[in-house]
Structures are given as structure tokens and as C-alpha cells.
Design a protein around this nucleic acid. Sequence first.
DNA 1: AATGAATGAGCGTTCATTCAT
DNA 2: TATGAATGAACGCTCATTCAT
Lengths: 228, 228, 228, 228
Amino acid sequence: MRKLRHQKRDNSASNRGQMAVVAILTAARDVLVEEGYPRLTMRNVATRAGITVGNLSYYYANKRDLMHDLVEAVLQGYFEDFEKITDNLEISPEERFEEMVRFIIGDLATKETTGFFPALWALANHDAFAAQEMAHIYQMERDSLAKVIGQLRPDLGKKERDLLALFISASMEGHTMFVGYRRDKASAIAEVTNIAVYSFLTLVKSIEARSIRGLKPVGKSAGKRLAS
Amino acid sequence: MRKLRHQKRDNSASNRGQMAVVAILTAARDVLVEEGYPRLTMRNVATRAGITVGNLSYYYANKRDLMHDLVEAVLQGYFEDFEKITDNLEISPEERFEEMVRFIIGDLATKETTGFFPALWALANHDAFAAQEMAHIYQMERDSLAKVIGQLRPDLGKKERDLLALFISASMEGHTMFVGYRRDKASAIAEVTNIAVYSFLTLVKSIEARSIRGLKPVGKSAGKRLAS
Amino acid sequence: MRKLRHQKRDNSASNRGQMAVVAILTAARDVLVEEGYPRLTMRNVATRAGITVGNLSYYYANKRDLMHDLVEAVLQGYFEDFEKITDNLEISPEERFEEMVRFIIGDLATKETTGFFPALWALANHDAFAAQEMAHIYQMERDSLAKVIGQLRPDLGKKERDLLALFISASMEGHTMFVGYRRDKASAIAEVTNIAVYSFLTLVKSIEARSIRGLKPVGKSAGKRLAS
Amino acid sequence: MRKLRHQKRDNSASNRGQMAVVAILTAARDVLVEEGYPRLTMRNVATRAGITVGNLSYYYANKRDLMHDLVEAVLQGYFEDFEKITDNLEISPEERFEEMVRFIIGDLATKETTGFFPALWALANHDAFAAQEMAHIYQMERDSLAKVIGQLRPDLGKKERDLLALFISASMEGHTMFVGYRRDKASAIAEVTNIAVYSFLTLVKSIEARSIRGLKPVGKSAGKRLAS
DNA sequence: AATGAATGAGCGTTCATTCAT
DNA sequence: TATGAATGAACGCTCATTCAT
């Protein structure tokens, strides 16, 4: 995760308040990342932002609004990141694809991302807003991926490209808990990234629509299993 | 997730207490799954288990101990599941591999697993015990996977097999938030599972050690990128 | 106000909790009476009852429930008081009427009543529950009054008796803020009570239904006023 | 309640500030009337007046001062109202008396009065200033009443006239909670007013000083009661 | 006159935990 | 084993008030 993008709503002259909002959002993210969601309290955020609870409530009347802005700020950061890669036409589609994979896996190993996203996933299970924002950000990621997949495999239909993007995106996210910041297998990140690039590229270049639809290629073991 | 396995520690005659513990653990899991970690309170657990807070504290003096047992009980269930698949020698290694993939992805779409594991991942970021237990369960999953990979690719070294198992295991877990219970892309689970089986099998059967180590095959774009 | 009547809901053996509830309700009434509604906080009540906020919440999960029980306890006390007077058949209807007037005005001068009821009236303007409970208690008062009025004036219809009871009841309540505990005109309570007895008795004994309906008796000034 | 009378203290040229004060006082009264005293916050007043909290504090440094002015403004309005009736010499004393009764009961049924006065009474129990202002306004009301009573009954002493005025004034105020705006018995206001006019007129015209002092007229039941 | 920003105390409520019975 | 009662800290939030600009 690189930086928070706070969209100011009103263009008031005062930038003192604007700075406070950035401090609050950064503090909130840091508390969430370093201490976890249950400790993301208004008091902790205020303390870390160097203000009082009362003043925090001046900027965010309630926790929900704060969470809202926090998630949106994180989102906006990724939106800008993905755009840069997708719009880089100086390199080939295959290179762009590899770059996306390396960017995403590289990002998920940062302290912020390793801390933030699992919290968001857990939240999304019981919080409609978190679920919606999560859907939004991953739709963006999949769209970027599907675009490049289309350039690599123009023969595939939109549905197949979207499913491949879904599979690849979800697979990458899964590595957060293993090669993420200070996680168990963090030392294997280089190798895992290499495998990811190889695996996803091979997948995209070789798969046939029937493998997705479930008609196993000839010689597969499925028949035998059904017989048993 | 299928069921909770609670290992009684003392062999006391009372099985009333044993039943109470199972009720408590089940209640705890259900609260966690249905309401999320922040609402996993001693009161909620006690109420759902049909006992009083005071009595809950007789079985679990504090929340940490309860969490401990809960995570271990979930773990134990999976230990038994994996064992059954790994020990099934009536089918070929390739079939065993496919079965593992289909079992894991099938499981992650259950209500319990979709609810439980993201909470565990988030917790593991800030709770050493959760991290340790998580490491334990996934080590088990990877061991099972690595064993079958070894049968499929006897030419690969242990390190490569382990890395492939890590990549495949992590990739599968990543689908929890997307095709899991009531998640965004739940309807695509069949196609995603097919892609997973195809992709992982292709990967295992085709990858060379040098692709893992990072020496890209000739003609790769890496050189060019480094030059830019 | 004489005493609080707390109706225990469950007949549990423990009277420790029962005593705590009485202590809480008494504390709540005293805070309300002595410090006013804005200072009727859970903390103040707990402190005065000699318990902690946490323990108060064990008995009353929220302020609304506490208020509910408090108002009902006060109500119940009056219910018993009125019953005693109404059921006293040893004295004549006129004496019973006088006794009721003297009891109500006498009660309104007690510290508890002077403090409690104006707070309830103010509350009833914006709190449906308070309004409903208030309606309940005064209906009871009017019913008692109307009963005696009926014995004094059997010639009057029910509607007229009810209106007289309403007028008399409301008039008496109005004295709370003037001859109530430590209020401006507290020293005039004896004379005011005498006037009340004389006035209400004269009213009941002399009024004709047409004076209530608005048809002024002959010789009244209404006509002249309309002409001017 | 008809309108707020704010007396400007300094004769500064700025009438912008004067208008702001009226807006603030009106906002304060409306919040009190519509939402109740506990919600009469500086923020609510400022918001309703269309200014910021900071600016409100320019006009009223603290809540006490604001309350002070609010109560005085309401008072002043009544002062003007009573003066008009008292000074109307075109009608007879009896008519003037009836007009006062009808005016007061009519006023107490307005939204503003029904909301404002019970709040003031409750406040007066614990706030010396509110008690003092309340005393002031009702003294005025009683003075007006006593004046007319004196014209009706020149034979009575000042003390008796004052006591009658106290009884009548207090009785009328008591109807606020019953026939006031949106209160329980609001539909009975016409009949109650008729009863009030009849009752108070009868009282004033017939009562003897000894009935006030407590020496009951011959034939009364007091003797019997004392005997029992 | 007016704003936006800030404080610190207090609110109702929830919580993990303890303990006598 | 099981309960009801109790504690003290923390939670999200609101408030009157202050102050620099």
C-alpha cells in the first residue's frame, strides 16, 4: 500500500482542517494495520493523530463515517496505481501482465497491505459497506487483469476472460497471509512470485474454454473416478 | 468446515462437562462465523450455549483460553479430513491431487469456513497464538499437497515441491473472499474450481526448477525491463 | 409522595437483587427530585444507590428501562393511596371529597412530589412513554374524584362529572409549582387548601350542565361583549 | 405564547446583532418547545438559528446567559399581554375577569406555552434564576387578577384578594398538562374553560374571609371528622 | 461579527473478569 | 457445576466552552 488519497469535499481555504483529516485517516490506517480492527477505537485514532476525541468527532461525527473515508482513501490509492500499469503502452501485453502480478504480490507484502486487507475481508463478512467497497476495489483489479488477458488471448470470450481474471486475482490475494509482512513464509516471496508469474502466464496462454466449463480434456482422470 | 473436534484433557468421569465444552465451542464458532470477531463476547457465547457468564468462566477462565480451544478444535477437524484424502490409495496421485483441490475449494465455500478463516487471518496479524495455530494447519495442508506433488514429479527437489505446495495452497485460500459463502462471486465457484484444477495440475506437471529460482527462460521480457 | 412500590417480576429466592432494585429506584427518584432530570444519569443513580455503573447495568440494561420502572413504582404508590380514600365508607361523600382534595394538595407539597411531577410533565411533552404513564395516573385520580362527584350530584350525566373531575384534578396539580416544597408560596398552603375545598365543593354542588356546555345563565355579560 | 420581546441593552447602531439575538432566542424557544430541555444544546440552538456555535458564543458566552435572556423575553411578552387586558376599561370588572381567564387558558393551549412552561417549572425546582423569573411572571399575573378581584369584592382585604388570585392563577396553570397542545384532554378545552369561568366567578363572588382562614361555615363536616 | 478548530468532561452502554453462594 | 451479583475499564458519542483568525 502506498499512500492514502483523501478527496476533499469542499474547497475551503483552510488547509489546517485538511491536514487534520489526512492525519486522522493515516492514524486510523496505522491503528488498523498495527493493532487490528478490535482496537481501532476513536480514542486510539485520536491519540495517534495527536488530537482529542472531541476534536476527532468534529471531523468524523461517528466511526462509520471514519471507516467510510478510510476505505475510500485506500481504494483511491490503488485506483491510481492500477491505472499507471494498465496505461503503460511502452511494454508488451505479456510484460504488462507480468508487471501487474509482480506489483500486486509485491504490494501485498508491505506492512500496510498485509495488515489492512485481511481486516477488510473479515469485516466484509458482516458489514455491508465493507463488502461493497471490497467488491469495488477487486472489480477494478479484475478489470485491469481481464483487459490484458484479452490482449493475450483474443480468442477467448468475455466470460472466460473474466473468470480467468477472477481466478488469478483471488489466487494472488491468498498469498497475503503467507508471504505477507512478517508472515510465516515471507522469505519465500521471490520464489512464490516467480511461480505465480509462470503459472498464471501458462494458464492464460494454454487454457481452453472447455476446461473452464468443466468438460475435462481427453485422458483426464475424471472418468475413472466416476466409475469407482 | 465439518465439525469441531474437542480433545478432552482430563479423563474425568463427568461427560456433562465434556458436553458443555462442546456446546461452548460450537456457540463460539457460530458467533464468530455469524456475527464476526468484535461480537465474539463471553456473554454472546454463554447465551448461545445456553449457560450463564459465570458458568462459562468455570470452563474458560478467560477469553484467550476459549479462543485457544476453539482454534484447536477447528484445526483437529481438518486434520482428520486431510488424512482421509491423503490415505486414500485406491486412486491415482493425480486424482488425489484433484480431490484435494476440489475438497479445499468446496470447503471454503461453506458458511463456517468463509466466516471463520478470514477472522483467523486477521487475528493472526496481531495475535501470536492465532498465527502459530494458523501456521500449523496450513503446514499440514501443504504437507499433504507436497506429498502428492512428489508422486507426480519425483524429479523435483523437496524445496521446489514445498514451494509449489505453498503457492497452490495460498492460491486456493485466496478464493475464500470471492467464491465463499454469500460472497460476491459465489455463483462462479464451479468454473473457478475447474480453472484451479487445470491450472495447478498444469503448473505441477510442467514447471522447471529454474522458473522457480528466477532464471527466466530465454526470450523473457525481464532483460528488457531491467534495461528501461 | 409516600413510597415506591416495586413489583418484582420473577419470584426468585434471592432478595439481594430485590433489595438492589429498590435501592436503585429510590436513588433514581431522589436524584430526579433533588437534582432534576438532566442530572438523572446512570452514574448519579449508581453512586447514590451505592453501586457501580457496571452493576447498575446488570439490573437495568438501559436508562429507558430504569425510567419505566421508576414511573411505574411511583404510580403504584398512588394507586394504593387513592384506593384507601375511595374505599373509606365510614365518612360521607362530601367528607370523602374533602379528604381527597386535602390529600392531593397535601401530597403535592412534599419534597418528592414537588420534584417529581413537574419533571414528569416536562418529559411527557416529548416522551411518549412518560405521556402514557402520566395519562394513566391522572385517569385514576379523576376516576376517584368522579365517583364521589356522582354521589354528590346524582343528577349530573357522566360526561359532566368527568369534566368536573378533570377541572378539579388539573386545578389542584397546578398548585404544585406555587405551594409545593420550598416554592414561592409554600407558606400559604393552608389557606389555599381551604379555598380549594370551598371552591370545589361550591362548584360541584351548584353548577348546572348548561354552564359547562357554554350556554351562559341569564344576565351574563356575553351579549354585551359581543356587541362591543 | 405570542412573541418574544428582546430588550436591547446597548443602543449601538448595529441592528444586525439585534436581529441575530432575536433569531437565537426564537431558535432557543423552539428547540425547548419542540425537543425539550435536555436537547436545548448550544449546537441545536446555533443550527436552528442558522449560525455556528462559535458565533453563538459571541452573543451568549454561556448557556446560562442564553437561558436568562430567553426567559426574560418570554416574560416580557406576557407583561404586554396582561397590560392590555387590565387596562381595558371599556368593559366591566366581571368581563375583565372572564377575559383574563379565557386569555390565560387559551394561551396555555398554544404549542409554545404547553412546551415552554412545564420545562420552566421543572427547571425552577433546581435553578434559582428560573425560580426567580417564574416568581416574577406569576406575581404579575396574580397582580392583574387581584386588581380585578378587588373591583369585584371591595369588602375583602388585600390578603384575601391575593390568596384568591393565587388559587385562581395556580389552578389555571394546572390545566396546561391536560388541555394543552396535543395533550390528553385537549378536546375538552372549551368545556373546561366554561367551568373555570363559572367556578372562579362563583368563588370570588361568594367566598367569605372565614372560609379562607379555615373557620368552616356552620354545618360543615369538619367537626365530625375531628371527632372520629 | 463570524468561522473553524480544539479541549476535556461527561454521557449511556458494553465488556472481560471475579467471586460468594 | 452453576448462578447471580459485582467491578472497573473502555467504548462511541455529545456537550459547553474556548480561542485564533
